[in-house]
Design a protein around this nucleic acid. Structure first.
Lengths: 334, 334
DNA sequence: GTGAAAGCGCTAACAG
DNA sequence: CTGTTAGCGCTTTCAC
């Protein structure tokens, strides 16, 4: 194995000089620098990661903690993961993958053994039990999602409240005056899921603000339940001409349900989803996108900033973007 | 930070003793062992990963190199990843995530800096340029997929040849005598993609073996192309009553194309796919599954075996499993 | 069955 | 601007 001493000898300098050329932590004369660089290249030298970590207490690795509970949209998750990995590499960092099933125990292990410089944790819910632990760890962490108390943490999330509002605004601008909201399964709300509750709240508030009549119902993931909820919405508000759907699993059934109930999309009923882009694209659905890449990128940037001792805001909310597709049209005048 | 010296002092033993309790590399008296264990627990000691790697030249980390080219089925990929991660943890190992876009350069970097003990590389194709490099590296590697020359490597893959054959056998057993094969886009075959070619070869050989007339065509990923290819197949072999599809992206259009051409599934035309299970389930398609979990698990087991100096076969082929669903039925007698 | 001590390869004072 | 050197925390001989 080629070590820093080999490089130093080959270049006729001290090991520390080689180290400084590599880290840039002190100024080196151009001649020395290029001499050293050349030796490094010639010998094919790569600093030993373990030795470096030991001496510098920096691993240049971030842990990425993924949720793998059923129901997460895998394509969106992968988009997030690759964005995070790519951004990490831009900062000369690597990514250690942790599945959530190791729980707090796993975090303690990885943190305790100094395997990583920081943590990225996805899909954090309001009362996640790992959050208090993260606060204690010596390594900084960035959460994707939004726990109840944000103080002392760094979180990034889509602004779900604004997302709900954005859907209403889009529909209101098209002339719709009676709008329904088809939400997640009711257990999700019982479970205190932040994104679900906030999207719903944003939807309701925007409707009030615009003087629009709104009705909301949860829906389970199966056809029966979706059909039932859509029918119930229409019964509750017969003049309804638009629907906001915040339920990925239900989306596939919505068009069918509406058809069965005699409503064409978008002529009789405009539909807006809050969902990953590929799903919306596939269903030709106007939607507020879940910005997976942007979240992954931002999360890493925030973590890197914290590692460099820079101050970062406790909560970064990404503005929702609505993409118009075939499922929305101006309200039928009649 | 708690070090091994702290634990040793607390337990009244030498640091080396603590180390040996942890690694089990020499016998320790039960009393000493439990004394040490207790101190470890009390102090919340975790060995420093970097220090350990430096002293032992073992990181207990494996690199997982993922393909992120367009067209890979993300849900199946994630199933593979989690299986690999879970199996790795069973062996006290962690997983470092590498995206393929770093290419050979990235492998060299990670290998050179001794960040990992070995490599897991997914979706290797016949002429992958990173394969020769992997052979040179000091760390062992396991490939998921099957490059042209397997000597000196360790590979795991689904037995695509048997998979193609299995589809034919299933259909032949149901009485079908004229079978079509709808393959990947023709560029995939031009690109020398092993799995595509082997599935096709297995299909052809099995048909010959069973005395069945077979016809094959490639298909692109869009509706037009699929419709065109299916129509061409039917024209070439009007008596065709069954279809084997090895093209994930086309699968969604197959049923529609057949309907347009006046064939009901499965009454007029039986369909078998070679595709990830969730896709097949969703389409209610009889299929040979892509055993993502099993591949991930096996790959890690093989790598661990190699790390322990155990001999492993250069090629491990997993037997295809066919799951019967609604898309196949006995041949209509008429 | 246990201890003492010599590194593993690198970084970061300290010294010039 | 560069060299010398003392660790970083652990494993693993060697010695008893």
């Amino acid at each position: 194995m080629v070590t820093i001493a080999d490089v130093a000898r080959h270049a006729g300098v001290a090991p520390s000089t080689v180290s400084y050329v590599l880290t840039g932590k002190r100024s080196i004369s151009p001649q020395t620098r290029s001499k050293v660089r050349e030796s490094i290249r010639l010998l094919g030298y790569h600093p030993h990661a373990g030795a470096r970590a030991l001496a510098s207490s920096r691993t240049n690795v971030v842990a990425l903690v993924l949720p793998l509970r059923p129901g997460v949209h895998l394509p969106a998750l992968m988009r997030f993961v690759t964005a995070a990995a790519t951004t990490a590499r831009k900062h000369e960092m690597d990514v250690l993958l942790m599945t959530a099933d190791e729980g707090a125990q796993g975090l303690r292990r990885v943190a305790g053994s100094a395997q990583v410089d920081g943590f990225l944790m996805m899909d954090v819910e309001l009362d996640d039990d790992r959050v208090p632990l993260l606060r204690q760890l010596p390594q900084p962490s960035v959460l994707i999602g939004r726990p109840a108390a944000v103080a002392g943490l760094t979180c990034v999330d889509l602004d779900f409240e604004a997302a709900g509002g954005r859907c209403v605004d889009h529909l209101a601008d098209l002339g719709h005056r009676y709008i329904g909201f088809l939400g997640a399964p009711s257990v999700v709300y019982q479970r205190n899921t932040g994104s679900a509750q906030r999207a719903m709240a944003g939807f309701g508030a925007a409707a009030m603000r615009r003087g629009i009549a709104s009705t909301a119902l949860p829906a389970d993931d199966d056809y029966e339940s979706v059909l039932h909820s859509v029918r119930a919405l229409l019964r509750a508000q017969p003049a309804m001409t638009a629907l906001v759907v915040h339920n990925e699993a239900a989306l596939g059934w919505v068009a069918g349900s509406l058809r069965v109930l005699g409503r064409r999309v978008p002529e009789d009923m405009a539909v807006v989803g809050i969902c990953p882009d590929d799903l919306a694209e596939q269903l030709q659905l106007t939607s507020v996108q879940l910005p997976a890449e942007e979240l992954g990128h931002q999360a890493v940037e925030l973590l890197v900033a914290r590692l460099n001792g820079q101050p970062v805001p406790p909560l970064t909310l990404l503005a929702p973007k609505l993409i118009g597709r075939a499922s929305t049209a101006p309200r039928p005048r009649g």
